[in-house]
């Protein structure tokens, strides 16, 4: 559990770099998820990452354009990757996870590794 301090989401959570247990970059905090049981105050339950989560946060024409492109490019699922808030070790200066990176956290990275970069000789292991 987080200690009892004021956490300003816009300042300390959103748009921060997410780093997994091994110290690898696994995307930015593109959005957050709130759960509300209808009675008590809403609680932040997860961080959303993956560029698809970014679309709705960009208003105007740029945001619409982003959403359209993302829908075209991601045929598999349009649900962004969730990181449960319990997995977060600390939020700032970067969001450190106590777990390995969630699956498909950076879907572009995996696809490009498999289909482009990994096929070029000398790409390492």
């Amino acid at each position: 559990m987080m200690p009892d301090v004021v956490l300003r989401l816009g300042f300390t959570v959103l748009d921060r770099q997410i780093v997994d247990r091994e110290g690898n970059n696994t995307g930015k905090v593109d959005d957050v998820e709130f759960t509300w049981d209808g009675k008590r105050a809403p609680v932040m339950t997860a961080l959303l990452t993956d560029t698809a989560a970014l679309g709705p946060r960009l208003s105007g024409r740029l945001g619409r354009f982003w959403r359209t492109v993302m829908q075209r490019m991601r045929p598999t699922s349009d649900e962004p990757v969730r990181v449960p808030v319990e997995d977060v070790e600390e939020f700032s200066p970067s969001t450190r996870l106590r777990t390995a990176a969630p699956e498909n956290a950076v879907i572009v990275e995996d696809w490009l590794r498999e289909h482009v970069i990994g096929r070029i000789p000398g790409s390492g292991s």
């Binding site: 770099q17 997410i18 690898n24 970059n25 696994t26 995307g27 930015k28 990452t49 560029t51 950076v106 572009v108 990275e109 995996d110 490009l112 590794r113 482009v116 970069i117 990994g118 070029i120 000398g122 790409s123 390492g124 292991s125």
Partner: peptide, 21 residues
């Protein structure tokens, strides 16, 4: 850096595939 991908010339290209692309 904007998208938070792994980046760097010192990483083997496989581990920074989007950056290399």
């Amino acid at each position: 850096q904007y998208f938070g991908w792994p980046w760097g010339k010192s990483l083997p290209p496989r581990r920074a595939a989007a950056f290399q692309t």
